[in-house]
C-alpha cells in the first residue's frame, strides 16, 4: 500500500464521517481512527438549526460527499449494519476508563454487546444479531445518534 493510497483512505474517512476504518490488502493492513471529540460531545444542535455541522461532527455525511461515501464501507451491500433503536448518545465502553466493547477487526457473535446508546439515563445495550467481523465503527464515542442510524458495519461470516 503506498503513502498516496493511505492519504486517500484518510480523506475517505474524513469526508464520509466514518469513525474508524480498517483496510487489508495482501499483507498490508491500515487502520484509521478519528480522535474523540472533546467538550460538548453530549450536545447536539437542534435539527432545525441552519448552522452547518462542526468539522468534527460525526454524522455520516449525506449527498455532498456522495463520492467519498461510495468508497467507504457505508455503501457496501455485502455488509450488515447495526442500527440505533433510539435517539441518544453512543458509548463504545461501559465506563469512560473501560476498554471498548468491540474494536474494528474483531469477530463478534450473536448476543454480544457492541455498545451502549444512552437516552436520558435509559441505557440501551446494543447486541450483535449475526456472527461476523466488525469492519467499521460509524460513529464516534460520545456523539449523538439518530433513530435508525448505522453504528457498526459487520461483514457476516
Amino acid at each position: 500500500m503506498t503513502l498516496e493510497e493511505i492519504k486517500q483512505l484518510v480523506q475517505v474517512v474524513i469526508e464520509s464521517g466514518v469513525a474508524e476504518l480498517e483496510v487489508t490488502r495482501g499483507e498490508n493492513r491500515v487502520r484509521i481512527r478519528r480522535t474523540a471529540r472533546s467538550a460538548a460531545q453530549e450536545m447536539v444542535l437542534p435539527p432545525a438549526a441552519a448552522m452547518p455541522p462542526a468539522a468534527s461532527a460525526p454524522n455520516p455525511s449525506p449527498a455532498p460527499h456522495a463520492e467519498a461515501a461510495a468508497a467507504a464501507p457505508a455503501a457496501d451491500e455485502s455488509l450488515s449494519y447495526v442500527k440505533s433503536p433510539i435517539v441518544g448518545t453512543f458509548y463504545e465502553a461501559p465506563a469512560p476508563d473501560a476498554p471498548p466493547f468491540v474494536r474494528v477487526g474483531e469477530r463478534v457473535t450473536p448476543g454480544q454487546v457492541l455498545c451502549i446508546i444512552e437516552s436520558m439515563k435509559l441505557m440501551n445495550e446494543i447486541e450483535a444479531e449475526i456472527a461476523g467481523t466488525i469492519v467499521a465503527r460509524l460513529v464516534e464515542n460520545g456523539s449523538p445518534v439518530e433513530y435508525g442510524e448505522a453504528l457498526f458495519a459487520i461483514r457476516p461470516d
Partner: peptide, 9 residues
C-alpha cells in the same frame, strides 16, 4: 449563544 439539546449528560 447556541441553543443545544442534551440527550445524555
Amino acid at each position: 449563544g447556541r441553543r443545544l439539546l442534551v440527550r445524555a449528560g
